[in-house]
Simulated assay, not measured.
Amino acid sequence: MSTVQEAGVRDWDFPRGVASVVLMVGFGREHGVPVQRMLAGSGVSEKTLADPDAQVDAHTELAVIRNLVRELGERPNLGLEVGRRYRITTFGIFGFACVSSPTLGEAIAFALRYLELSFTFCIPVARWRPGEFVARIHDERIPADVRRFLVERDVTAMHQMLCDLLGHQVELVRAEFDFPPPGDRRLYDEIFGLQPQFDQPHNLFSLDPAMLEQPLPQANEHTWAMCLAQCRELVSRRRARTGIAADVRERLVPRGGVDGFAAPPGIDLVARDLNMSTRTLRRHLDAAGTSYRQLLDEVRRALAEEMLTATPLSVSDVAIRLGYAEASTFIHAFKRWTGTTPSAYRRGALTPPVR
């Protein structure tokens, strides 16, 4: 029997911070590529690179990646070289949340759930099965001209994060890639601690599942809870809808986070706050391709998952805070959203069973 955990996103086309672009531009500059050539066609200026709060879309980073591959693509194992530059601190609050997680397994589960706060183009899916933890790396939607580079870069970056989290070199149980072997495999062997297999059906790597239970050296429960809240807030901002849907969603999200949550306002109250009739609000939301109920479900689901994983509240207390009259109604809704019960989600979301 096995347990599968998918990432919180299914595709690479999500906005991301500028740190990854900064890293690649720096790598290019070290190897003789001027900043202007690294940024050509991306729409990113040198001034943007100096702004730690700057955000770019995935296609912008992809333009920089293409420039890097065009300029330095003749270097053997370019993706590995770049990937090992991604340290846990490169990822900002996302990285700090991973570092402060109680165990490696919980850090991995968190990283999958909030993957859109990373810089990856490859989408990992984790599977726990008897004697092995396997991460399959999906690259099917990555443009062919940069696919190998990004598989090398992203898998190496994931491995580097594991090393940073545990504070020592992590040797994999196995590593497989779906492309032909390079002329010189030594860097692969050095980084991953084994000889990978090439020309395989899938890209994947695996760990001894016992490693997932290892406490992290910098684990801190208070810091972890704080980082979780900040990551949830950041994801909400990045996912924020526009127009009337954004106005409604803003009125449904509690100002004080989960601690200050009160029952959400009904559609009549939201419409009144927006200076329109309920009927007009419904019509506008329908034109925007959504509804009050859909937006309310989105907010409730995000808050429910946060409260179940980051607070000791009982399922009944979570139901009350979300505005449900009975816990059974909340449980039914949660199963509709996630396919599992709140109690099962709490047990398994951040500590997947090792079998």
Rank of each mutant, 00 (worst) to 15 (best):
F94C: 08
A319G: 03
G83C: 05
L39Y: 03
Q200S: 10
R153N: 06
L166C: 15
E233Y: 05
G32E: 06
H284N: 11
K47R: 11
G83W: 07
T338A: 08
E298T: 01
E306C: 04
R293Q: 14
R232S: 07
R186T: 09
T223H: 15
Y292F: 11
G167H: 14
L194T: 11
E171W: 14
P181W: 08
R87G: 15
L296Q: 05
F198P: 05
G83K: 04
P264E: 01
S316C: 05
A126E: 07
A327K: 07
S291A: 10
T290R: 00
V318P: 03
H59D: 09
D317I: 08
H31R: 14
R336D: 11
I142L: 03
P264D: 01
V125C: 07
P76T: 08
G167R: 13
T156L: 11
T156H: 03
I108P: 02
F334N: 01
D13L: 11
M276R: 14
Q195F: 11
R113D: 06
F205A: 03
Q36K: 10
S314K: 13
E221I: 09
D286K: 14
H284S: 12
Q36R: 12
E6W: 04
P181D: 15
R251D: 03
P15Q: 04
A210P: 13
T3K: 13
A40R: 12
R355C: 04
F334Q: 01
R232P: 04
N203F: 00
F94K: 09
R238T: 02
G266E: 09
P15E: 06
E6M: 10
S343Y: 15
H332T: 12
A240W: 00
N203M: 00
G256F: 11
N203G: 00
Q5R: 14
Q294P: 00
E213K: 10
S314A: 13
S206L: 11
P342A: 08
L23V: 04
D184C: 13
N275E: 15
Q294G: 04
T280K: 14
F121E: 03
D199M: 07
E176P: 02
S101M: 07
V9A: 04
R321A: 13
S328L: 14
E152F: 01
A271Q: 08
M276W: 08
A175P: 03
R283K: 12
G8M: 01
D11K: 12
Q36T: 11
R29L: 07
V64T: 02
V173H: 14
P76A: 05
R87M: 08
C98E: 14
Q230P: 08
Y292T: 02
R147F: 00
Q200R: 12
